[in-house]
Simulated assay, not measured.
Amino acid sequence: LVGMATKFAEAVLAVRYRETDSTGHHIGGPMFYIKNGLGKKWLWLGGLFSFFGAVAAFGIGNTVQSNSVADAMDATFGVPHWLTGVIIMVLAGAVILGGIKRIAKVAGKLVPIMGVAYVLAGLLVLIVNAGQIGEAFRLIFYYAFNPIAAAGGFAGAAVMAAIRFGVARGIFSNEAGLGSAPIAHAAAQTRNPVRQGLIAMLGTFIDTIIVCTITALVILTSTVWIDGEAGASLTALSFDAALPGFGNQIVAVALAIFAFTTILGWSFYGEKCCQFLFGTRSIMLYRVLFVLAIPLGAIAQLGFIWLMADTFNAMMAIPNLIALALLSPVVFKLTRDYFAGKDILPGEALDHDK
């Protein structure tokens, strides 16, 4: 619920304070709602967000993704980590550096298909494991408030650890509060900030409440999590326990497509942050470094990769959350105006220099 409210505020402000660049495209995000909403004296905060965003993209949107795919491909098909990293680097590089949009379009069309297939496979597993669902919910609520020694791929001990890892993974999943999603929402064709905010909320609900809950229940209704597995292979083996022969393959293929499109999306977020700091000339250098980091993530240690991603996600979120708190009266006013039937202008229709 907090994530949905946060995402709503981010998207409303992104469209409200966006600008139109020299190519005629809408650009926006936290750095722009800080600059245009809070004024020039807060520009340093926008610069801080842009720096952390440009760096965080290498974690959440790059190395973690390639590492997860490499992990699943190794567990499912026996493909070496380094080979998976090189293949993703070549395909992502063709889009990011070579401008080959066809690969991105194909992947973009596959995402909804694989999303539906993943959810249906998850529901099928839960039907097979129906007798264990009640126990899974009991485990979730009992061990959220009662310390437990670490088991399998799970972080152990204490309410604080449960909250810390739960919040970190939730934010990692839906990006609410990070400030990355508003960069995408600002580019939308819509001219109504509040309508875009409502769409943003729906995305968080589908991602976290539906997809993540199904994944958690699939893992907890199997016994694989007790055996020491972690990361993407934990999910793949949990699916395969109920759907032998093809459960893990569904997860591996879905993960590869989701991760690939996430890498493409985060390269856009990162370069926009870099562009805000250093101008348009810096974009190509950023793209090259971003592509080269992909295979490094695939062969790195899982624990280190997640720690790095969590750290930079937090550093990125802080400036954004400060801006959201300071601009919350604007969000309240625009929302009230929208539901009262008044016209609400997007950023390109405002004079930001006043």
Score class of each variant (00 low, 15 high):
253 V>A: 13
105 K>P: 00
64 V>K: 06
318 I>Y: 07
36 N>E: 09
271 E>A: 05
276 F>C: 11
191 R>A: 14
71 D>H: 05
319 P>H: 00
294 I>F: 04
258 F>K: 02
173 S>R: 01
133 I>C: 14
109 K>D: 04
325 A>Y: 02
80 P>F: 03
197 G>D: 13
221 T>D: 03
338 Y>E: 06
101 K>I: 06
61 G>Q: 06
285 L>R: 00
187 A>Y: 08
300 A>D: 13
153 G>M: 09
168 A>M: 02
173 S>N: 04
36 N>Y: 12
316 M>I: 13
255 L>P: 07
164 R>L: 14
64 V>R: 05
204 T>G: 12
239 F>W: 00
230 A>E: 14
64 V>H: 04
250 I>K: 00
350 L>P: 14
301 Q>L: 14
249 Q>G: 12
37 G>C: 03
288 V>C: 13
19 E>S: 04
187 A>G: 05
154 F>A: 05
344 I>Q: 03
320 N>E: 09
119 V>T: 07
48 L>P: 15
308 M>N: 09
238 S>H: 03
132 Q>W: 02
270 G>K: 12
250 I>E: 09
27 I>E: 12
133 I>F: 05
183 I>C: 11
119 V>I: 01
166 G>F: 04
68 S>L: 03
333 K>G: 01
209 I>H: 02
167 V>Q: 05
236 A>H: 06
75 A>Q: 06
141 F>S: 14
354 K>Q: 06
130 A>K: 06
65 Q>A: 08
157 A>V: 05
265 G>Q: 15
81 H>M: 07
225 W>C: 13
45 L>F: 10
23 T>G: 07
235 T>N: 06
218 V>M: 03
205 F>Q: 01
164 R>W: 15
354 K>A: 15
143 Y>V: 11
109 K>V: 08
216 A>H: 02
60 I>L: 07
337 D>Y: 06
145 F>E: 09
341 G>N: 00
354 K>H: 06
176 A>K: 11
298 A>D: 08
16 R>L: 13
214 I>V: 12
264 L>M: 15
292 L>K: 03
252 A>D: 05
141 F>Y: 08
340 A>V: 12
92 A>K: 01
120 L>K: 00
193 P>V: 12
216 A>T: 12
121 A>M: 02
262 T>H: 14
294 I>G: 01
140 I>Y: 00
185 H>G: 15
101 K>A: 09
30 P>T: 02
13 L>V: 14
329 P>Y: 00
239 F>V: 11
126 L>H: 08
207 D>R: 01
253 V>H: 08
247 G>L: 01
110 L>T: 10
103 I>Y: 07
180 S>M: 07
219 I>L: 10
50 S>Y: 05
270 G>E: 15
250 I>N: 04
48 L>V: 15
31 M>G: 07
197 G>Y: 07
104 A>R: 00
235 T>F: 07
55 V>M: 03
6 T>L: 09
294 I>Q: 00
283 I>C: 12
181 A>S: 12
245 G>V: 10
328 S>N: 03
